[in-house]
Design a protein around this nucleic acid. Sequence first.
DNA 1: AAGACGAAAGTGGTTGA
DNA 2: TCAACAACTTTCGTCTT
Length: 308
Amino acid sequence: MIRKTIKECPECASKNIYRDVEKGETSCRDCGLVLEDRMVDFSQEWRDFDDDGGEGARRRTGAPTSETQFDRGLGTEVGSASDFYKLDSDKERDKFFRLRKWNIRISTAIERNLKVALAELKRVSSYLRLPRSVEEEAARIYRLAVQKGLVRGRSMESVIAGALYAACRRHEIPRTLDEMGEASGIEKKEIGRTYRFVTRELEITIRPSNPADYIPRFASALKLSAETQSKAVEILEMARDIELTSGRGPTGIAAAALYVASLIHGEKRTQREVADVAGVTEVTIRNRYKELIKKLKLGKDVEKNKKK
DNA sequence: AAGACGAAAGTGGTTGA
DNA sequence: TCAACAACTTTCGTCTT
């Protein structure tokens, strides 16, 4: 495995690089960009009770404590080790093991559900190239949701998506509901619903997302220069100061700021291009754009650069 | 022909009675 | 629980480059 040392994020130039040895993944804490990864998940499976099938292998199920705690009080042990020696025929012993095995399977249903859920979570988060910290936060949220029985009546996938969405926002690297929808295959309405539900029930408070958090990602998707990017952030700050941002969808504002910045720096992108990466319509960009131009007297800046 | 602009009608979510 | 409401979308026609 070839490994080069990366000191700086090529996307946002942040020095805040995070290396996860266990997962073999290096990512940028600021923008979430995964700089190198092995593409293969070597992380451990925790259940090993049917590993070798050996008679005497009285293995514990090997789950970490956080997992096992769920079946406390739920277990219906079928026989114990000492019962085994009371059986006289091989046939009965076989039966004993079968039943016992089945029982373990059933009683660990919740645990297994969690395992499946975490696998799904990993799939989605790697699709979105989210940093490990976010993944863990989402896993934590999902566990809490399961404990509180919030998954009932909802699909596991939608709760996963909601948890990830929440985790992203907490870490200030928000993804849009559209992106989350694409990655998870869940409709964005549904994700939004579960997200609200879960965060409310778990009393997780999440600040409204800052439009500026979207800028680096959108800008890089549009291949805009760093200057344009910082101009967009600057515009956003001015907009926020005169309360232009409150009540509006953050992605729309971010998109409009980026659009204006692209005009000012002569790196024009069409409204449609910007709209696509931001997941809003041109109309929304136009509306925000108009407001920005008017309220921030940006008109002349744009005009000036239009000429060349 | 493509992009920008704006009007009008529709959608889904929030809020307040 | 329902209706009013704001933000955003969809659709479509017109204007500009």
